[in-house]
Amino acid sequence: MTAQRSTSRDLALIAIFAGVMAALGLVPAIYLPLTPVPITAQSFGVMLTGAILGGRRAAASMTLFLGLVAIGLPLLAGGRGTIGVFAGPSVGFLLGWIVVAWLIGVLTARAGAPYRLPAGIGINLLGGVIVLYAFGIVGMLLRTQMTVPAAVLANAPYIPGDIVKAVLAAVIAKGVHTAYPGLLRVRRPARARA
């Protein structure tokens, strides 16, 4: 296994997960009881990509996905696309995807194999909810000139759904790492190689 081989495999993984994001845009929105806001699968895809590919590849994959949207592929949930979305009020969330995928990827890789559910859920909540909403709200403030409380209020209905997605992404990531080992480095036992 030379370094060159891993580069080509990296390119393939980055491209395929951009395709996974596109495929998740086709998944019909899920309606939870008690909330009127539909849950789309794509922010779930951001967390999942981070938890599976690791930081560098996940960030590259999100960048590629957004690049495809920018050049005109209708890949955002509901068939949206065009550079127009980057001028819109959700630009913070979109650019946040890159950072969040990277952050979740780095933290998940640091936690190592075997993938542990509680740590995975914690990492996904930190990245996919706290950090992502920070980006999203800042973006909305810049584009719509609202006050902070108003921007928070506009986003609040989505938060319960994203918490569910963070948990779900960790459950799926655990299943994937079990079925396809080798993506995460095996954790060293506490006192090995002393």
């Binding site: 390119l11 395929i16 396809y180």
Partner: peptide, 22 residues
């Protein structure tokens, strides 16, 4: 779960094949 896990695992295999052909 029964949908996403096999989907992602197959996507990873597809990436292996694509990487090899690259």
């Amino acid at each position: 779960r029964a949908f996403a896990v096999p989907l992602i695992v197959r996507a990873l295999r597809q990436a292996d094949a694509l990487g090899e052909s690259l």
